[in-house]
């Protein structure tokens, strides 16, 4: 198989990755979750089930929330990808308003599902600046949270909406 490169734009950084079978290369079987975590060391993307059932590995591809454990890295050539590490201001480290709202509302317990949830809400707010609660619930319906932080997550989202409306 001829070797080739793919290019990912992750959180504004360009990554040229070689596709092939050698240890440092992206294999055609590698998922985006694997590449982000193992090759790019962006471990903020969490893998709860690795089967597309829990939502924790959600990242944004071209602005849309996608399950990175069900997405092959080689499918992402030339794609813009945002992970949880990409939300804060790269210069100042200031948190995105949504991240701030999660902090203020205490919208997590163990925190494993939090990065995925934040990114799904981010994608929603990018296309719908004033969602009603049902929209938010729908956007989060694929996210599993066993600690039951759902109510505080909804509070965080209404907090950020209220702040945006001020």
């Amino acid at each position: 198989m001829p070797e080739r490169f793919i290019t990912l734009f992750v959180n504004g950084e360009q990554y040229n990755l070689e596709v092939g079978e050698r240890p440092w290369m992206v294999r055609t079987s590698h998922t985006l979750a694997y590449t982000l975590r193992e090759s790019l060391e962006l471990t903020g993307t969490k893998v709860g089930c690795n089967k597309g059932e829990c939502g924790s590995c959600t990242v944004l591809i071209e602005g849309k929330p996608v399950l990175s454990c069900l997405t092959l890295t080689v499918e992402c050539d030339q794609k813009k990808i945002i992970t949880i590490e990409g939300l804060e201001d790269p210069q100042t480290g200031e948190l995105d308003p949504l991240q701030q709202a999660f902090v203020q509302s205490g919208a997590f317990q163990c925190g494993f599902c939090t990065p995925g949830m934040i990114l799904s809400v981010k994608a929603l707010l990018d296309v719908n600046a004033a969602p009603v609660e049902e929209d938010v619930k729908e956007a989060l319906s694929g996210h599993y949270c066993r600690c039951i932080s759902h109510y505080h997550v909804l509070d965080a989202v209404s907090r950020v909406l209220k702040k945006a409306g001020e």
């Binding site: 962006l42 993307t45 949880i84 948190l95 999660f102 902090v103 990065p115 934040i118």
Partner: peptide, 10 residues
Amino acid sequence: RKDAGDIVRG
């Protein structure tokens, strides 16, 4: 929470 920043940053 003390770890809140870490959690929301991944």
